[in-house]
């Protein structure tokens, strides 16, 4: 398989479907596995569709409730954000403490809707990807479409499993917030699922209908 192909194509070659196969599957609405690397650009997100199983490698930032509140205060004061927001991926997460010799403790996603109040502003500033779990508001969906961004869900409650994909964790700022500090993570093949794609398709709304029997 050609090693230089970064995204969907790599996986396509890996399982022998090829580009034509992918195009046929896309037309038929079939989802697929993809490998992507950060930074996540609009070029990346336009190839991601709801239901795709995506493995992320590279740098992602961790921030949840209290950190988002502080980021908004930073913006209010017209100061620079503590990490580069352009094409950034933010993981809504607060890890358990790391044991000695390990980069991090348990590290699964937290409920994303608590960040709905803050997310559109950060997306408008260039953030491209959000990783969390659970529903998002219409304002967030609109901001995703407006900025060609993406919302990924990681499997909630699989914090031990997900921590194995985190190779390095560094404090960026707000250490006083404890589990809510902003971290910079190096991840390898971190597994997520596209729940809201850059066209505004929402897997939470469609997936349950398929299996509903009432």
């Amino acid at each position: 398989m050609p090693a230089e192909l970064p995204y969907a194509e790599k996986e396509a070659f890996a399982n022998g479907r090829g580009i034509l196969g992918i195009m046929i599957e896309r037309t038929a609405g079939i989802t697929m596995d993809q490998y992507i690397t950060t930074p996540i650009t609009a070029e990346t997100t336009k190839n991601l569709h709801v239901g795709d199983y995506v493995y992320i490698s590279g740098t992602i930032y961790v921030a949840r409730d209290a950190a988002h509140k502080r980021l908004m205060e930073v913006l209010e004061r017209e100061e620079p954000l503590p990490f580069p927001i352009q094409d950034a991926a933010i993981y809504y997460m607060g890890p358990s403490p790391a044991r000695e010799g390990r980069p991090i403790g348990s590290a699964g996603p937290t409920t994303a809707s608590r960040m709905d109040k803050y997310a559109p502003r950060l997306l408008d500033l260039g953030q491209k990807a959000m990783i969390g779990k659970g529903k998002r508001s219409q304002e967030v969906v609109d901001a995703i479409v407006r900025n060609q961004a993406v919302y990924f869900a990681a499997v909630g409650g699989a914090g031990a499993l997900l921590s194995k994909c985190i190779q390095k964790s560094d404090l960026v700022c707000y250490g006083d917030l404890g589990a809510e500090a902003i971290l910079r993570l190096e991840v390898k093949d971190f597994p997520v699922i596209v729940v809201i794609d850059c066209q505004g398709n929402n897997l939470y709304e469609t997936a349950s209908k398929e299996y509903a029997v009432l």
Binding site: G105, S106, G108, V155, G156, A158, G159, A160, L161
Partner: peptide, 18 residues
């Protein structure tokens, strides 16, 4: 994955959920 998660949690002493 959740089954695998439980296995990792117990074997490697990582809390099941953060």
């Amino acid at each position: 994955q959740l089954q695998e998660n439980l296995k990792i949690a117990g074997e490697e002493m990582i809390p099941i959920c953060q």
